[in-house]
């Protein structure tokens, strides 16, 4: 995957570039808004990680707005030290696809960037999700594994759907909280873990192989054996 990083802080940028390359991505890095806009507009990327406050007279939101007016739909993750909810709304309104507040853990950043690019590929409306021997029919809202029907609560269904749509990718607890429950705060209790463990009881326990894996220090991943 080809990713553009627009970030002026050398340490943060170095850390992110190293991490993304280790994860197997090709990364271009620019340190100011002008170069960022130039690169983003002139070359093709699978995703752009954009700092909001940038030197060079062009800030992150300006870059984003310019790209969107040029019909450039490259998915953009805004990276910002501005945590204010209203600012977050501004970022998303300007055309951002996701908003991550500094400081952040690399695992969270990586998971979100990978989720973005997956969404951008957009195969159109799907009626069926398949991961290994797990099948989800989005129309009849039924789930089968190895031909055997699995009964799920509505919320469990949405949780599994989210995991299946991001199959092969790390999904963090915050992403699940935002994506499945639409909550934007950190619960003190390990509520997400409990829900995932319940889902496991139904999806993995009766079968010889596990599909839902815990990724240490990051979150979860739905992955078929051998994928």
């Amino acid at each position: 995957m080809r990713i553009l990083l627009v970030e002026d802080d050398k340490d943060v940028a170095g850390f992110v570039v190293k991490g993304l390359r280790e994860a197997g991505h090709v990364v271009e890095h620019v340190a100011n808004g002008r170069d960022g806009l130039f690169m983003a507009a002139s070359e093709n990327f699978d995703a752009i990680i954009l700092d909001r406050m940038l030197p060079g007279g062009v800030d992150g939101l300006r870059i984003l707005e310019t790209l969107r007016t040029q019909k450039n739909q490259t998915p953009v993750l805004i990276l910002s030290a501005i945590a204010h909810v209203d600012e977050r709304v501004r970022g998303l309104k300007a055309g951002g696809d996701d908003y991550l507040t500094k400081p952040f853990s690399f695992a969270e950043l990586l998971a979100r960037v990978e989720a973005l690019t997956r969404r951008a590929k957009g195969e159109g409306p799907q009626t069926k999700l398949v991961v290994g021997d797990l099948e989800m029919d989005l129309l009849s809202r039924t789930v089968r594994r190895a031909g055997q029907k699995i009964d799920l609560q509505p919320r469990e269904f949405r949780l599994l759907e989210y995991l299946m749509r991001h199959a092969g990718q790390v999904v963090t607890r915050t992403m699940l909280l935002e994506g499945v429950w639409d909550y934007h705060f950190d619960p003190q209790t390990n509520v997400i873990d409990v829900h995932v463990s319940r889902l496991r009881q139904k999806v993995d326990k009766p079968f010889p192989t596990s599909l839902i894996h815990t990724v240490r220090n990051a979150g979860y991943m739905l992955r078929a054996e051998g994928d």
Binding site: V85, V89, D97, R119, Y162, M175, E178, G179
Partner: peptide, 10 residues
């Protein structure tokens, strides 16, 4: 116009 935060969905 500023009411809802667009949920970030995967």
């Amino acid at each position: 116009d500023t009411a809802e935060i667009a949920p970030v969905k995967g």
